[in-house]
Design a protein around this nucleic acid. Sequence first.
DNA 1: AAGGTGACAGGGT
DNA 2: TACCCTGCCACCT
Length: 106
Amino acid sequence: MDNYLELVYAVTRRIPRGRVTTYGAIADYLALGSARMVGWALHQSIGAADVPAHRVVNRKGELSGRLHFPTPTMMQQLLESEGVVVVENRVQDFPQRFWHPAEDEE
DNA sequence: AAGGTGACAGGGT
DNA sequence: TACCCTGCCACCT
């Protein structure tokens, strides 16, 4: 178990309900690796039910990771259950929904 | 050992 | 807004 994975999971778990963030924002906050590393880390999160990976999208607000969930629609389903509107695999009002780890609003 | 791949991002056109 | 190219870095052939 790489410590890097735990770091990414820890940040992901702090994403407020109903908000989303990006791979790049997490990489930027950790100041480790790159956005690709975060994508890789979340890929490993499959099976870790306590990690809300559905709240992490790419810079355009697209649900680029939906195909890695148990079902292709689960990611969108989870987001909508939190009040996040998703259309054509894209988060609506993305700039407003965006949350950066450094904000730490909770 | 070397090259390809990927849940990405930023800048140019 | 969209498409293309380049940088990124660990993992998997």
